[in-house]
Amino acid sequence: MATADKEKKLKEGWEGISRFFRANSLWMLMYCTGCCAIELPQAMTSRYDMERLGMGPMATPRQADVLLVTGYLSVKTLRRVIYAYEQMSTPKYIVAFGPCTINGGIYHDAATVIKSLDQYLPIDVYIAGCMPKPEAVMNGFQDLIDMIKDKTADGWKRYRDNYDWYKQNQIESLGELRIKDEYHE
């Protein structure tokens, strides 16, 4: 009993230390198919300087911690986003930009654009605004950092626990998840 207690405490202590490092070193994977991506250069360069929060761009999903979905996703791009998200190593977070990821935004009646991203992937932070200003983007990242510190950024745990529900939604809208076209045969 005592040893189990001690182990639990040790694990919690380690988790706490890890959270401190995770919160202050977020590497981003930018999925820039939407228009909100145009706000990221300002947030990254000298005016708002994202690097002071320890954030930086990364080249591949494997290296990254945060997936930035900047705007609308069509059926074709959603399939690739799911691929990218599942390649990332846990813990991983998603920040969704703009109304298109919330309820479809100006694309609510488009035949090939999905409406609500949280049906398919777990979102940790939404940044509202069409497009969000760089201040809003920085504020969203600060929120994400605070959420990681107080353990509420648990999207990757929700995805793991409700995997069947997410998979079912994905298959309903996408048919099957495999990328199937003449270039992947």
């Binding site: 890890s18 590497w27 000298s46 300087d49 002071r52 911690d65």
Partner: peptide
């Protein structure tokens, strides 16, 4: 960062990056 007229990260940022990577799962 100062050369770019930015504020820049903390001087111990590289330590944070390395320890964060060590606390993640590896494939």
């Amino acid at each position: 960062a100062r050369y770019h007229k930015r504020y820049g990260p903390k001087w111990y940022q590289e330590f944070r990056d390395i320890f964060k990577l060590m606390s993640k799962t590896g494939v």
